[in-house]
Design a binder for these strands. Sequence first.
RNA 1: GCCCGGGUGGUGGAAUGGUAGACACGCAGGACUUAAAAUCCUGUGACUGUAGAGGUCGUACGGGUUCGAGCCCCGUCCCGGGCACCA
Length: 1043
Amino acid sequence: MEYRPGEIEPKWRQWWKDNKTYQVKNNTEKPKYYILDMFPYPSGVGLHVGHPLGYIASDIVARYKRLRGYNVLHPMGYDSFGLPAEQYAIQTGIHPAESTKINLERYREQLDNIGFSFDWDREVRTSDPQFYKWTQWIFMQLFNHYYDKTSDKALPISDLVKHFEANGNAGIVAVCEEETPEFTGSEWNAMTEKEQLKMLLCYRLTFPGEAYANWCPALGTVLSNDEVKDGVSERGGHPVERKLMLQWNMRITAYADRLLEGLNTIDWPDSIKEQQRYWIGKSVGASVKFEVENHSDKKIEVFTTRVDTIYGVTFLVLAPEHEWVGALTHSAQRIEIEGYIKWAAARSEIDRMSEVKKVTGAFTGSYAINPFNGERIPIWIADYVLAGYGTGAVMAVPSGDQRDWSFANHFKLPVVPILDAQKNLEIAADPTKEGRYINSGIINGMTYTEAVPTLTAWMESKKIGKAKTQFKLRDAIFSRQRYWGEPVPAYWNDGLPYLIDTKDLPLVLPKVDKYLPTESGEPPLGRASNWRYQPAGSDAKFEYELSTMPGWAGSSWYFYRYMDPHNDNEFCGKDALDYWQDVDFYIGGSEHATGHLLYSRFWNNFMFDLGLVKNREFAKKLVNQGMIQGRSNFVYRAKEQFFEEYLMLKVLEPFFAEVGPIVISESDSEEGYNYDFAFEANNLVIEVTSRKQIEKIERIRQTATADGKRLLLLTTEELTASINDPEKISEKVKAALNSREPYIETKDQPAVEQLFVSHSLLYKYSPEAFTKLHVDVNIVENDVLNIEKTQTNPHFLNANFKLDPNGQYTCSFEVEKMSKTKYNVVNPDDIIAQYGVDCFRMFEMFLGPITDAKPWNTQGISGVSGFLRKFWGLFFDSKGQFNLSDEPANKEELKILHTCIKRVTEDLERMSMNTCVSHFMIATNELRRLNSNNKSALEALVIMMLPFAPHVAEELWGMMGQSGSVCDASWPILDETHLKKDSINYPIQINGKLRATLELPVDTSASDAEQAALALEQVKKWLEGNTPKKVVFIPNRMINIVV
RNA sequence: GCCCGGGUGGUGGAAUGGUAGACACGCAGGACUUAAAAUCCUGUGACUGUAGAGGUCGUACGGGUUCGAGCCCCGUCCCGGGCACCA
């Protein structure tokens, strides 16, 4: 019987569904194992081959652990709130819940096709009110708690109030706003209720506050740092600016130390831990206060990690945004300072990044006094000092810090050496801590380790400074001016926020007429009618908070919901939590290093403080699966033959007829000559990444328009605007078509050398041009373009043509991230249809180590496909009849089997799936060679194959007469005795180089082995009659003779 | 610039400090076939060679430790990912 995956695979999926094979119970005597995938955001494009990589790996581990006797929790769900659905809603008016549901069903269908062992009864969706009810509930807990530094945990606000009533805020060490004033118990009691509530906001773990935010005017929302890339929004590429706004914040900084320490307790990749450590950015140092001449009310506080350099301070630098800049500016300097501030504010993030080396700044005219030596030092402003870090002011030590040195050098400020070991200060700063201090008052002659405590003690006694630890980590902004997110369960009364009653959870997203900000600039929820809260026992209604929660809210705790997904009374029941505890193994992409993976740890720590969860860390072990990259194929051509025009026209041709206007946007990033293609609305958008392209485009345009066709060029800004307002674009198109004078931007630039056009795109839209192209292709070296294959599926082409000296067409490829706009996305459905799911699963694993990034390449899939057929063939005789021998397995069979058991087991434990596949191949090839059809051996192999190829395993299991699912079988037990060899083939090395091999019985003694080795002809030849200096003998391994 | 990974045949990749290149793809030759596909067998790091013997070289490059290094240490180059003036 032939192996027909197309028949057996759907059959078993249905069987699993009917028999609830993957249903997981919370109450069992078995040990638990919780293996979790990062849940996907269900985007409109569906799964590509990169998605399942991690899911397949986790599914293999889940199935393996189950065979090992664990009760395995392996759930899946959806991170279903998010910006793309909202953008789609803005464009189409379709409710995000609707489009999300459609996407989600597509995902589910694709996931089902891959044969995962998910318990779908436990599915969660963050946008489901029954889920976000608990996201809101956790938010309320954060609001109702503060962070107590003494016990180092979160405590109820009510405890804090009691303390305030008795003692004010003296004697309480809590994490709070920097400017929180001190007050006594009676002062507290004398405050109005409103004043008290306002004061409490300084302590709550989530609170509304003014903060600089990444405001994106085009999207009408605030973005998190990870959503901003190079000064533009990650999605859409819209400009982003820094803006002071009233936002909900999460006091994640309270947990900075614990988040840092916790990293030492978890088995996560070092790169992730490093990124988190850097992000938290703990630096230990001191803060020092500098008095300002003629401003007795102002003391400039600076933070430094090198307090030992205090005598080398020759000026202070404030951030241009520092609040005292205005007051400290002398009238003579006012024009210059104001000019500088204006200039600095106008600098975009990109400017700042690209001009790091440029020294800029301005002198305020004021002077500060160095508290250690009383010296008068000028106060400058410069934008290398960041307003958001530390105090927004630094003490500049040009001899020890390169930035300070450059600044001093540029503005001719003095450089004072402070250590005798400092060298070449006329060329650069020397940050050394070696040597002994000079010019340094009380620490003269001391070393670094002596100086620091001396200085700290001195300044603490004089109350001019103190030891301080500073974190880079900022409080996390939690508000989004968007529709498609969790509503914040709070309302406003007289400028103060109040929580709604727990009984009123979930606070369900209201309907709105449009998913855009209101006319007055309020978030979309401002459009909802009667979006007001009536507290119990109140006649009045109050306006709800209008912002929604960010994407990371739901994902910060979802792993607990899987444990008890249908619980209406708790986010997760106590019994379920007691049993499942935490995630044993978490698999997902490393791109979440400082986002999801940090916020989740923060929430988890908080929930741990409240006794809501069992462990400080939510995931014991984390593995990052590598990205599967796409392969984009390109066609090149030398410039002088005007190939580009030909190609472009061929590509564009169909569109002139079909879609009307063609939009070409221009962005002047770096070099590179890509035309990127994408569809926006109904237009073909060609993004030109170099100004040099404009001329080319213009020539094409002229050719095109001569034929009565139209082409329109737009700048990036216009394109951006068009996405938000489709009306605008059509106006522009109309105008351009009427005038027949499209907007063109040109520059005197040399013509491009070559041009890349996506290969597959060309095929897709102009098969004719594609065919033409390959007729005279000159094929070089081994990689041959298989035109047959290519024509059936342009994605699978394997072209690697070298540039031909005769100017022939040449092809090449680049490996890049899979993305829709690059036309290099490979959908798993096609492969599954051709080879079957089991083959797809095994092939993805066979591609290489799970953690490596690798380009998707179907070369080699035939090897896995062939292996599965061979494996299947082991169960059938030459007549095609299912035929197994019931004899006990012989020695050779046992050796093959147990070698396989040993290797696969070991490799599974270390997540080396690719080598597991090759072990199966070896076992299969060897059994075939023996013509073995031993039932007991094959039964064990079927069990081991289950995690990798579940359908074929179930089918063969059934054919072997077993009832029930092979999922409930037990992993074969390794018996090392079958691996024992009688003899060892020793490598004989001379001076570490292999010269011969020698077969010797196992456990041959050192002297016998030595004797036998020295007797070999090959060895004698190398010895040339000399006695060896030394013989190294490693039992059962090797012999090395040193001559 | 800083921090983390990595660099092995034509390709994807194997290799607790112990016979480098497992397994697979590709390629070449052969069997079967009217033919093709499929399948099976053999070969396949480079150079050299008396050619199924033997030898030399070989894991980015230069050093080192070791009886022995792809693996450990020092330096250099290149590629991938992350961060952005953090005082």
